[in-house]
Design a protein around this nucleic acid. Structure first.
Lengths: 204, 204
DNA sequence: TGCGTTGTGGTCCGATCGAACCATAACAGA
DNA sequence: TCTGTTATGGTTCGATCGGACCACAACGCA
């Protein structure tokens, strides 16, 4: 194999150019020429590494999702050993808020792709593979919290988890638009956690 | 004035074609030719009634927003005279869910425009004119509910209102993607209303 | 030293883009 | 009936689109 080149590295650089353009003005402006100019390479490279524009969009999204997942996993393990259910739920929800440039970028790019998710079957797989994974995870943590006596045993973990996740996701637009500060969004989430983790009985 | 033509009617028809295309595959496919074909008119008409493509996108969005506002107002008045705070809050939140074709279309088109809202100053005005109007309205209704003894006086109306609205808005994507049924989303909202309108003291 | 695979750069093609341009049909008022 | 505004249709332009094509540089292997 001649001309040793790191394919993954190349694809990542091109994908990053796609993200920047998509976040700036939507998929509309993600043309092969613009991406090439943004990445500082001849347009021909895009064909070589991704083939068609459709594959470029799909590939860029996959890399973005893989990155986001890795960062999320990292922040989860940063919680240390044996984190409380509340801390884990909080970390999950904060992952859904645009609290830094990486999360902001991920969420804006997802917004740019969203309408395509509705119709494009290839892209739909990127989001539908585990539709309720987050909600189920939060629900199980709430259930665990109930067993530990941190959470009111009367409430329905699944329903509360679903609304918690929806709430965090619904806080994205106003924060991205600058209507809410990130801090306010975090406060709103914490307030809900205060309510749920009210500690009805400290003993098991 | 010759050739009596209802301009508003024409612009509406063209705007509807924009909505259909935008909802189907995003702003990317909203080209002058596609819109003309979708509306069944020569492309020239779009120039005449909207000027540039940019003005077409902006105009179509304004008509969409005006329609949505009118429908919302209609459903509010359908609540009858002297509706309970809970009924009004519920109606507001359900307006944010894709429960029929019109709401679904409105919300999908908004999603298609979203990334533009972040950067395009002209479009930003369409959403930023009253950033907290909904939250404030819900908050005032929760406060009224507290005075009527329908709502726990301990909770913070503004914070709960903000999270309610965010939650409803965050339920849009899973419903649009078919991961949640509309009925499930409504149930989740009603569950939160059950919690908030717990009726701590029935007398004032 | 060739040889064949791998990667790069530049160019070209047909299609389509947004928008300008022009001719003319329709019709209210003089 | 004539006139000028209003509206419509069709055509054309330069730019840009996605993607195909071709020549060739780089390099491991025989």
């Amino acid at each position: 194999m001649p001309r040793q080149v790191d394919h993954e590295e190349r694809r990542r650089r091109l994908a990053e150019a796609v993200w920047r353009l998509a976040a700036r003005s939507g998929l509309e402006d993600v043309t092969l020429r613009h991406v090439a100019a943004e990445a500082g390479v001849p347009a021909r490279q895009l064909q070589y590494y991704f083939g068609t524009r459709e594959h470029l969009l799909l590939g860029a999204l996959e890399i973005l999702n893989a990155d986001a997942e890795r960062r999320a996993a990292q922040r989860m393990s940063d919680l240390g050993p044996d984190p409380s259910p509340r801390a884990v739920v909080r970390a999950i929800l904060l992952e859904l808020l645009p609290l830094d440039d990486e999360r902001r970028r991920t969420q804006v790019v997802h917004a740019a792709y969203f309408v395509r998710f509705l119709t494009d079957p290839a892209l739909a797989l990127s989001v539908r593979d585990s539709p309720h994974a987050l909600e189920d995870l939060v629900a199980s943590l709430l259930h665990l919290g109930q067993e530990l006596g941190h959470v009111n045993p009367d409430l329905d973990p699944q329903a509360e988890a679903a609304f918690l996740v929806a709430g965090a996701q619904g806080l994205q637009p106003p924060v991205l638009l600058g209507q809410y500060t990130p801090q306010l969004a975090v406060n709103l989430v914490d307030r809900q956690l205060d309510r749920l983790f009210a500690g009805h009985r400290q003993d098991a």
